[in-house]
Computed example of a mutant assay.
Amino acid sequence: MARKIKPLIYVFCEGESEIEYTKYLKEKFEDVAVIQKPVKGLFEVADKKFKKDAKYRNNAEVTDEIWFFFDVDDGQTGSWDRIQKIVSTLKKLRKKPNIRVRLLMTTGCVEFWFLLHYKKVVPSIQTVAEKENVLRLLQNECPGYVKGDSNTTRKIANHFKQASINGDWVLGQIEGLPTLEDSDVRNRWLYQSSRTFTTVQEAIKFLENLKN
């Protein structure tokens, strides 16, 4: 029986918390996927690396997926059109099939995604006070958590199966969502909406399916 080649995945993260979570996934799923060391920075950083960094550029043809792990809120700089242009360019770096680009988006703060590791909840996360409330709720479940802390992030990540279920539940609560499928149409709608949501679970489900 031929040995199955593990998919090669690059992950670009907004902050240290996302990086620590990705490191956990890298170790947890190393038997089925090659997740490269996560990079701090998002779309412009990825675009620059795949254009100018030989390590990335030379691997483009064997890169299966590129993930962007970030928060979405009203104060975010840049526009969807700018993001979509870079995503489109990255997809085409590999021909037949194109590179799969996943947007692992969470409303307001990554702590909402972390909170879903413990409970089903859909709070408003638009203001600073509401983000602080989500942080408090998370700290009630995981005492000692602070952004970027490796130990508590790993403790949270151990519950990724529950988070995946709860993340899907959250998407299912959203009225007016064009489709549940990961598509440019859906992602644009979510990115530009003020709804509370996360799509990080779609990366988790992808990795779990590889194990199965």
Rank of each mutant, 00 (worst) to 15 (best):
P7R: 03
P7I: 02
P7C: 03
P7W: 02
P7D: 03
L8Y: 05
F12R: 00
C13I: 06
G15W: 02
G15S: 08
E16I: 08
K28Q: 12
F29V: 04
E30V: 06
A33H: 02
Q36F: 12
F43Q: 04
V45K: 14
V45S: 10
D47F: 07
K51W: 00
D53P: 00
D53Y: 01
N58E: 13
N59H: 04
N59M: 06
A60D: 02
E65V: 14
I66R: 07
I66S: 06
W67N: 14
F69T: 06
F69A: 09
F70G: 10
F70Q: 10
D71Q: 13
V72H: 09
V72C: 15
G75S: 14
R82T: 09
T89L: 08
L90V: 05
K92R: 15
K92M: 15
L93Q: 09
K95L: 11
P97R: 15
R100E: 14
L103E: 04
L104C: 14
T107D: 02
V110W: 00
F114T: 00
L115I: 03
L115T: 01
Y118N: 06
K120Q: 15
K120A: 10
V121S: 08
V122W: 03
S124C: 11
Q126N: 15
E130N: 06
N133A: 13
L137F: 02
Q139L: 09
N140A: 10
N140Q: 12
N140F: 05
E141K: 14
E141P: 07
C142I: 08
Y145V: 11
V146Q: 13
D149H: 04
T153D: 00
R154H: 08
K155E: 05
F160G: 01
A163G: 10
I165L: 14
I165V: 15
N166V: 12
N166Q: 13
N166H: 15
G167L: 03
G167E: 02
G167K: 01
D168N: 15
V170W: 06
L171P: 03
G172I: 08
I174H: 02
L177I: 13
P178S: 12
T179S: 15
D182H: 10
S183N: 11
D184N: 11
R186C: 12
R186T: 15
W189G: 07
W189H: 12
Y191E: 02
Y191K: 05
Q192Y: 06
S194W: 03
Q201I: 08
A203L: 09
K205H: 14
F206W: 13
F206T: 12
L210Q: 11
N212M: 13
